[in-house]
Design a protein around this nucleic acid. Structure first.
Lengths: 374, 374
DNA sequence: CGAACGTGTGAATCGCGGG
DNA sequence: ACCCGCGATTCACACGTTC
């Protein structure tokens, strides 16, 4: 054990002199990682190709075309080709990771199960899967699936016996209204001024991640001065967040245009003052509650009758959280509007439950759920 | 249409004669599934073992001294056993699933990546991964990780070419404040009175799922009268939700005590009234009305002028239900597309009749005919 | 100048039935 | 099996223009 510690200290001393800190290496990710000294980086953040398998075009209801990710770098011949690619870079990444280091990988359902299995097969030890919930995802235009409103990150240590990894629990808790940090994060997608544009005004990279996401990763699992490696550097969000938060970065990117754009982007970043490098407060979540939730929780039973305040209209609650008004079925708002022959209606205040103690606006059930969640 | 309904009813009648509906089969999951007829169930919900114990048992006592490759090999043995188990039950499940059926699996980061990879390898087609966010997760006591506040469900069709699976989009949207249903669901864990207790007052099953979770799954992806199979029945939440919502269930459970507890639990469930659970008909299932019918009924007269909402384009109604746009003649959809220079257009919402009270979308004439038919 | 309105867009495995 | 026509389908923001 003593020998191992000394070896690690020696490697660390060597690595600071040989590591290409705060630079972008242009080249293949595995080849470039193999040139780095072993056990030399504190944190790895990887946003590998997702291997989307898109069929045809996707159009919005107004017939405009969705600009899909159809780049060559995202194409793989088969699952097994993708698996081989995944194993290769995960293995190379594991070699350069310090024994106390951890790895983050982000993906969607297209690839994340392959990545997670490969991680486990190679001996990584999963610490958490973390869900990035998007406040503003792209809708599902055909109405045939749930809106794909999240992506998944896996946070893993080098091995099952890895101890001493960085997790800034106290800071995260203090920044989260003194509540423990959870595995679900609510963060907007990258858009507006943050989105990197080319000279033609179009997005410079198809899958740029929001800096807020990377900031939370770095604040959670690294310390100031740590070395953060990103083997799929892309538009350089990891580098931008690292520079801003006083961490060193090493990026690997195969595409020279992406690398150039990332360099320019990071050059423009102004680091935060040292004292300011603490956890940003978590975004307060919008407490939206659906009426189906009220029914699911049993606060109003399917089949119950709702009436308006003056008892002129009556509707029946259905198991899926819709209302039936005669033959018409719809949301509490829609049915409230239909009943009154109006364009719109706030169903929460319009509809009441007639109980033994008189009328209760259904809004009070929503309040109950909100206070329970808080 | 009538023939198709009869055909479907016939198939349903055949399968109901051979399917052990609304019963719990006590035995090994794969063996019991192999006794069922192929292509006979509409929905499968599976909550397989997470394999936590197995991994712990098979790990070597002192891993710090082991080479990484040996370590990986060691773990591969245990993961391999879990993978074989997973493939076996997923394969047996796929055989009994109707071509239009879908499968849900729930898991945590310990096993869900193995399950997702196996699903894809066996030819299932993932439709969504859905995150169950817990309002009240178990805290992380040691403060070394994020509080594990969610579990992951995978929703998959039988294959990439599977069409016609059930997704009650309209009802889900109406029950969600008229917003599209998303891939992240916020639901409390099962506790309090809902939690099944043994005679000793202790919880009867370690991983009982909340009925609200199952209710949302069934309301989203099945119809009343459908057959729902749960190969790891446990405390019977799937059966309870199915009975309450007018679906049939088939449960498979190896443990006789669990099966007995589930039977008693389900016997006590009182089904919801029929009217409360029938899904609102989706627009795509509404009877088709041709524009020629609208003209025939005199709701729009031949020679009438139709315009788009902004008055940029004008077309003339012809007696046969086609439109004339300059010299071009065609359907309401074709002419709407031609007028805008687009590939496609929904003529029902694009074209409006300019009456004394302003513009009326011609879709409202179709609505009038539909309600008259009902 | 601020409000109101219109337009653009984001890692997407996005239809279905009849002939 | 393919082909083709019908016709169903979107949410949160950012930004630019108009009132």
């Amino acid at each position: 054990m003593a020998y191992r510690r000394n070896g690690a200290a020696l490697a660390a001393a060597q690595s600071s002199s040989t590591l290409p800190l705060d630079t972008i290496l242009t080249g293949d990710c595995v080849a470039e990682l193999e040139k780095l000294p072993p056990a030399s980086v504190d944190l790895i953040f990887a946003d590998p190709p997702y291997n989307l398998q898109l069929q045809g075009d996707l159009r919005r209801p107004d017939q405009s075309l969705v600009d899909a990710v159809d780049d060559a770098w995202d194409q793989f011949e088969s699952f097994s080709a993708y698996d081989a690619f995944t194993r290769a870079w995960l293995l190379a990444a594991r070699r350069v990771l310090k024994p106390t280091g951890t790895l983050w990988v982000i993906g969607s359902y297209h690839n994340i199960f392959r990545v997670g299995s490969a991680l486990q097969d190679l001996g990584y030890w999963i610490l958490n899967d973390v869900v990035w919930r998007k406040t503003n995802p792209m809708p599902n235009f055909r109405g045939r699936r749930f809106t794909n409103a999240h992506e998944t990150m896996i946070w893993a240590a080098r091995g099952a016996d890895s101890k001493g990894y960085t997790f800034n629990y106290e800071a995260l808790k203090a920044g989260n209204e003194d509540l423990q940090p959870r595995s679900d994060w609510l963060i907007p997608i990258c858009s507006g001024g943050e989105r990197l544009k080319g000279e033609d005004g179009r997005k410079a990279h198809p899958t740029q991640k929001p800096e807020a996401l990377l900031a939370r990763v770095l604040l959670a699992a690294s310390k100031p001065g740590d070395v953060v490696l990103d083997p799929f550097f892309g538009s350089g969000t990891t580098g931008a967040a690292a520079k801003r938060l006083g961490r060193h970065f090493i990026g690997v990117e195969r595409d020279r245009d992406y690398a150039a754009a990332a360099r320019a982007r990071i050059d423009a970043v102004i680091p935060e003052a040292h004292e300011a490098i603490v956890s940003a407060p978590a975004k307060r979540e919008a407490p939206r509650v659906a009426f189906s939730t009220v029914v699911e929780r049993g606060l109003v039973r399917p089949g119950a009758r709702l009436v308006d305040e003056r008892g002129r209209y009556e509707a029946t609650v259905r198991a899926d959280g819709t209302l039936a008004f005669g033959a018409v079925i719809g949301s509490i708002h829609r049915i409230g509007a239909v009943a009154q022959g109006r364009e719109a209606c706030n169903g929460w205040t319009f509809w009441h439950f007639a109980g033994p103690k008189g009328l209760t606006p259904i809004d009070s059930f929503r309040e109950a759920i909100r206070s329970e969640a808080a």
